[in-house]
């Protein structure tokens, strides 16, 4: 289970990345939101990245497509309607890379762990119940709905 200090560090990393690079506020919720507020339909950009070494973990993000479109549009300076799935994938891979790389810099200041290469795909729908066995489910709130993340060790 992710510790309180790691939660804070992960939140700080996500806030910094989304704030600095994408001008989009996000915040890690202290606990899972009420089930009746879940909006799980639609597409997500599923992005997985891991780190290994003395400490190891996998983090899998489920970015709502609307969030990914807004971020990619602003980042690339292109009309949102013109953004391709590949651009969404590429942008969110980079976002996950930055969040976890920044997080790793905090929990592993000596640099003993190696960050993996992120892998992303566009998926239809998302089920928190379906991934809860894979690890601990965390939720970020954004202007575009919930950003889900599974933390597994």
């Amino acid at each position: 289970m992710i510790s309180d200090s790691e939660r804070k560090q992960l939140n700080a990393s996500a806030v910094e990345v989304f704030g600095t690079m994408y001008f989009t506020p996000v915040e890690l919720l202290p606990e899972l939101p009420a089930r009746d507020s879940w909006q799980l339909e639609g597409q997500y950009v599923k992005t997985a990245i891991s780190y290994a070494g003395p400490r190891q973990a996998g983090l899998c993000f489920y970015f709502p497509r609307s969030l990914a479109v807004s971020v990619a549009g602003g980042f690339l300076g292109v009309e949102e309607a013109a953004i391709s799935d590949q651009q969404l994938i590429d942008t969110m891979r980079e976002a996950a890379n930055m969040i976890v790389g920044n997080f790793l810099g905090q929990i592993d200041p000596v640099g003993e762990c190696a960050l993996g290469i992120p892998v992303a795909e566009v998926v239809h729908g998302f089920s928190p119940d379906g991934v809860s066995q894979e690890g601990e489910l965390l939720t970020f709130i954004s202007d575009f709905g919930f950003l889900w993340m599974v933390h597994s060790v």
Binding site: N97, M98, G101, N102, G111, L115
Partner: peptide
């Protein structure tokens, strides 16, 4: 994105001109 001081020290010692964190 790799922001550990050790990693930055490593690349500078190898001859990198500068290091910018993402």
């Amino acid at each position: 994105t790799e922001s550990s001081q050790a990693r930055m020290d490593e690349v500078v010692s190898l001859g990198a001109a500068a290091y910018i964190k993402k």
